[in-house]
């Protein structure tokens, strides 16, 4: 084939996908790469906005300060872990159960369904506000109900032992609908013939659910749980900010809240950067491990 003229498409035609991708890539690179580099700079230097005299390379000092000198980071780490695991488990179980009921045909189903989805549309800040006032010890509805049961002026969010429970309730309230939506979509996409076959084989309703339906839904479950996990870890900020701002003490101060307060309240920029970067590392590990653990070997 020597000496043969090799055809080259015009350059502008070969570069077309690059043109199409470039605005998106430019934007995404600038909001990930630059912050990453900048955060790395902050993390390795002493940067305290209120005290510009202190500066210079101090990675070891910074790491020691955040991870060793005080238990705050590890407290927040534990709080975040408890929060994520609890809300995702509860939301998954509730969402799956509700989806199973909505999978049935009954009159009024399509009418009531959108009402069940409402919480996930609401602004998280407003959701936090509603629950803050529901839990308010003086006039809140829940405190009122507790009072009727004999508990006087109990403020769930003001007690260190129950504040996190209050946050969890608000999160479950807002995001269970998301699980419901995904689970229901997953169920409706399943073929029904395996269920019919199992029925003919004499399986009970529960056995069909556990042995046939759940395994078939695995891909959707994996995705839904992963999405919720990432969001619960990264984005449960607004509600906490509004409901407790990390308090009382630090019992509801998750890593995200800690990073925010370090940077924007105390202006210890290097601390905020280290906490934030540690979140990035955790989320990468979490998705890798969980993705592999839950997805198992690729099945397609």
């Amino acid at each position: 084939m020597s000496g043969e003229q090799v055809y080259r498409a015009p350059l502008h035609r070969r570069l077309r996908p690059l043109y199409f991708l470039s605005p998106t890539l430019l934007i995404l690179l600038s909001v990930t790469l630059f912050p990453l580099i900048y955060s790395l700079y902050l993390a390795t230097h002493t940067v305290i906005l209120t005290n510009p005299m202190l500066s210079g390379w101090s990675l070891q000092d910074n790491l020691r300060e955040v991870f060793l000198e005080s238990p705050e980071y590890w407290e927040s780490f534990a709080t975040t872990l408890i929060l994520v695991v609890t809300v995702v488990s509860i939301e998954f179980v509730l969402g799956l159960m509700l989806a199973y009921f909505f999978y049935n045909n009954f009159t009024g189903r399509d009418f009531i369904f959108p009402f069940f989805l409402m919480p996930m549309m609401l602004t998280p800040v407003v959701v936090g506000t509603i629950w803050r006032f529901l839990f308010n010890g003086e006039f809140g509805l829940i405190a009122g109900l507790l009072k009727a049961m004999g508990v006087v002026n109990y403020s769930i969010l003001n007690e260190p032992s129950t504040a996190l429970v209050g946050i969890i309730i608000a999160d479950v309230w807002q995001w269970t609908p998301f699980m419901l939506l995904l689970m229901l979509a997953g169920m409706r996409a399943l073929p029904t013939s395996p269920f019919e076959a199992a029925q003919v084989d004499g399986a009970s309703r529960f056995q069909i659910f556990r042995d046939i339906m759940l395994p078939m839904m695995k891909p959707v479950i994996v995705i839904a749980v992963l999405i919720r996990m990432i969001d619960a870890f990264n984005r449960t900020f607004d509600t906490i900010y509004i409901m407790t701002n990390g308090g009382p003490g630090r019992v509801t101060e998750t890593l995200a809240v800690m990073a925010f307060r370090s940077s924007f309240e105390y202006f210890f920029m290097h601390q905020g950067a280290i906490v934030a970067l540690s979140m990035l590392v955790i989320i990468i590990i979490m998705t890798k491990v969980l993705g592999r653990f839950m997805a198992g070997p690729r099945e397609d």
Binding site: R16, P17, L21, T24, L25, L28, V31, T32, F34, P35, L36, Y38, S39, L42, I230, F233, N234, R235, F237, A256, A259, F260, S263, F264, M269, G272, A273, A276, L277, M279, L280, I283, I284, T287
Partner: peptide, 29 residues
């Protein structure tokens, strides 16, 4: 619609930004 080298990695990179903690970007931005 196109096949090109690194396409799937690129798609995965774009998706994975969904899990980038917003708080990491907050201060630099």
């Amino acid at each position: 619609r196109y096949r090109f080298r690194g396409r799937d990695d690129l798609a995965f990179y774009i998706l994975s930004i969904r899990m980038f903690p917003p708080i990491v970007a907050a201060l630099p931005i």
